[in-house]
Write a protein that binds this DNA or RNA. Structure first.
Lengths: 248, 248
DNA sequence: CGTGTTTTTGCGTTTTATTGCAATTATATA
DNA sequence: TATATAATTGCAATAAAACGCAAAAACACG
């Protein structure tokens, strides 16, 4: 591969993710670290990016502290990083939508090889940045509130799927009441998602623990992993530890 | 082999692969490195490619990441505003993806009442901002390049749909060759979209006029409206005016 | 034809560019 | 602070490019 092509490749990565890791580039481009470092330095000299320890960031990076409440973002990153450990090469994964899931996608290693089904357009777009991930967007009615597809057609398609793992966010979880929701449509959707995967991981920031809403999706035992930003021996989690569920 | 033949050979390689290696050319053309270098230099002087250490790259390849979309934005807004006039309350509309279509969505009147089918997640998200638009996202394999869903599942779903109007962007349109595309999958997709709507409007900035690519989607007569940023009596459009097609 | 001129090409040499390695220094993270 | 990870630096091997030169081929034209 020509140097210019490497540079273009790096810039494409930068434009997509706003960041690159030196180690990822070494793998993806199959050259030594030194070469990558020199490449990055040249791109810095051209004013196209800036280098940091471990990789490089896009010039527009600083302005990309765009979305959502900053304070919750740290927690979501912690959760996302834990969730990434569940993903192995070759897996078929089903995901819902929401900012936590989106953060999880962003934390995936660059060269991971997997198949992802999702009901969230934004997740699909984010997944498309990974070269070795096959992305299937499950289509149907599009919910203005949840920003995911839902309805009969989605549930039909989910019923034909068997994924290795389902990852979903939640608005409420409770040791006795299980996973609950407010809207019937979303409730149905989550039930279908649970049924479509061998195992399910629920990503949930601690402020949503011990809350029960009107409609039950499932009992707590139906969930394989509960992932929060807390240590797994934190007192808030004792109620969940008692059940057959892995706390991460 | 004559010099001119070598040059043509090199340009064919460039057009095919966007790149050539000096060493490959030496082997393929059976001449010395010096000759190849001189050839490449002459092609550079003619502005047909540009040289890099180890070979040469095509001109178009060069611009692959520096996002030309910025300057064209004004044109796209003009196109989008024209396209909005085609939409009436109660319509069932099918749209593709791309920046021009996205701009069109943004230009829709806030209280419009319609049903939109789309293969583009980004379009779906944008449409969700309108309270009275029902959004159906057509699901399937997600294309990393085009950022739309495609493949057999999408085409099946499209075959069950009959929309009033289909709106699509295009990468090339030509008065004789019609609508053309480079990738087979996208070609199939566009054919299915055309078939799924009573009328079709093509949104197309003028720089894409009079270009023909490898695969034909349809003849120019199959299109109901051609929307560009130019006045409808602009000289570039005379070739299209001759056909049975509305220029907006 | 023949002769002088121009173009094209390949060879040897020098110069420059690219890349990986090893040793050292700096930086992060538990 | 200790340990792992990343960056820097100088160096050497390799690959590519540039340059001058000369042989060969093509061309121009009386």
């Amino acid at each position: 591969m020509l140097k210019k092509e490497r540079h273009d490749f790096i810039m494409r990565q930068i434009n997509l993710h706003n960041r690159v890791l030196t180690s990822d580039l070494v793998q993806l481009l199959n050259v030594s670290e030194d070469t990558i470092r020199r490449d990055l330095q040249e791109l810095v000299d051209d004013g196209l990016l800036f280098k940091v320890h471990g990789g490089a960031l896009s010039k527009s990076y600083h302005s990309s502290f765009d979305d959502s409440t900053v304070y919750a973002r740290d927690s979501k990153i912690i959760i996302a990083k834990k969730a990434v450990n569940l993903i192995k090469d070759g897996m078929v994964v089903l995901t819902g939508g929401g900012t936590t899931i989106l953060e999880f996608i962003k934390q995936l290693p660059q060269n991971i090889e997997a198949t992802f089904f999702t009901i969230s357009p934004l997740v699909a777009v984010e997944l498309a940045k990974y070269n070795n991930i096959e992305v299937i967007l499950i289509g149907g009615l599009f919910s203005k509130n949840s920003q995911v597809t839902y309805g009969g057609q989605v549930i039909t398609q989910l019923s034909e799927l068997k994924a290795d793992l389902c990852l979903m966010g939640t608005s409420a979880i409770h040791p006795e009441e299980g996973l609950t929701d407010t809207y019937w449509e979303i409730n149905q959707l989550k039930k279908a998602m649970l049924a479509a995967a061998k195992k399910t991981a629920v990503l949930c920031i601690s402020e949503k623990l011990d809350i029960a809403l009107r409609l039950r999706v499932c009992h707590i035992e139906s969930i394989s992993y509960l992932i929060t930003e807390l240590d797994d021996n934190h007192e808030s989690l004792t109620g969940y530890l008692a059940k057959e569920i892995n706390i991460l």
